[in-house]
Simulated assay, not measured.
Amino acid sequence: MKMLNIRSVGLSLSLEKGLPLGSGLGSSAASAAAAAVAVNEIFGGKLPALELVLAGLESEAKVSGYHADNIAPAIMGGFVLVRSYEPLDLIRLNFPTEKNLFFVLVNPEFEAPTKKMRAALPGEILMSDHVWNSSQAGALVAAVLQGDLVGLGKALSSDRVVEPRRAPLIPGMDGVKKAALEAGAFGCTISGAGPTVVAVTDDEEKGREIGERMVEAFMVGGGLKAVAMVKKLDTVGARLVSSISR
């Protein structure tokens, strides 16, 4: 509202959200994106996407830290590379429109607080692991731009820094990843800080089959109940769905 120079009124927002907290699904960014877009629309939709990301960043900073890796794509849609914060520099990575990309998201009944998952990360990493992960990051960007789902899955499945430390904290994670790949997923890894696990495929029906295998693996390997969702890449981002004038 400050960015819109609205100082004469106050607002009360009511949010209904289908995302569990602490799930690794960017639930705080979903709230921030919804609020920023809604308030902007109420007052005429004057702010561009980059300004909305900045507003959302302020909200994110209050609950999960000042980072745009969730809020930027939530508002802008698709894939967004965060190049820097001072100044904020975002690069939109356009995934080919003729390609289909589905995410299989499997959320177990297990708490994995972001603070705990961050604490598990190493204070120092080997140069060889740094070089490897940097290569995978570059390969991931190239795969997104080329619509190469095999390459995308391979890159996101090959982390040597974060996943090896966090996977042991999620019961059954290794078996879930193995089940996803054996069921035909192009790749599989931990979503955000976890405990949600994400796999990628190019077919919705195939995604449901992969999800079923992952749910079974969570029960067998970790004794955890889990639910699976299959979601197509959203290239639009947060937007006004409907409005009621009073």
Rank of each mutant, 00 (worst) to 15 (best):
L4T: 03
N5C: 11
V9H: 12
V9D: 06
G10N: 11
S12R: 11
S12P: 00
L13P: 12
E16R: 13
K17E: 06
L19H: 04
P20D: 01
L21F: 12
S23M: 04
S23P: 03
G24L: 08
G26W: 01
A32H: 00
A33S: 08
A34K: 00
A35Q: 06
A36C: 05
V37M: 09
F43I: 05
G45Y: 06
L50R: 00
E58G: 07
E60D: 05
S64G: 15
S64Y: 08
A68R: 02
A68E: 08
N70K: 04
A74C: 11
G77K: 01
L81M: 13
S84F: 05
S84N: 05
E86K: 07
E86V: 03
P87E: 07
L88M: 08
D89S: 15
I91P: 00
K99H: 05
N100H: 12
F102T: 09
V106D: 09
P108K: 01
E111Y: 13
P113E: 12
T114F: 14
T114N: 07
K116F: 15
M117G: 09
M117V: 06
A119I: 03
A119S: 15
A119G: 15
A120W: 11
L121F: 12
L121N: 14
M127Q: 14
H130L: 15
N133M: 08
S135W: 08
A137H: 12
A139C: 02
A142T: 04
L145N: 00
V150A: 15
G151L: 07
L152D: 04
G153W: 03
L156Y: 14
S157T: 07
S158L: 06
D159M: 09
D159N: 07
E163A: 11
P164G: 13
R165W: 10
R165L: 13
A167W: 04
G172P: 12
D174F: 14
K177G: 01
E182M: 06
G184F: 08
A185R: 04
A185G: 06
A185Q: 02
F186H: 12
C188D: 04
T189I: 00
V197I: 11
V198K: 03
V200N: 01
E209G: 13
I210C: 07
M214V: 10
A217G: 06
F218W: 09
V220N: 10
V230L: 06
L233V: 05
L240A: 12
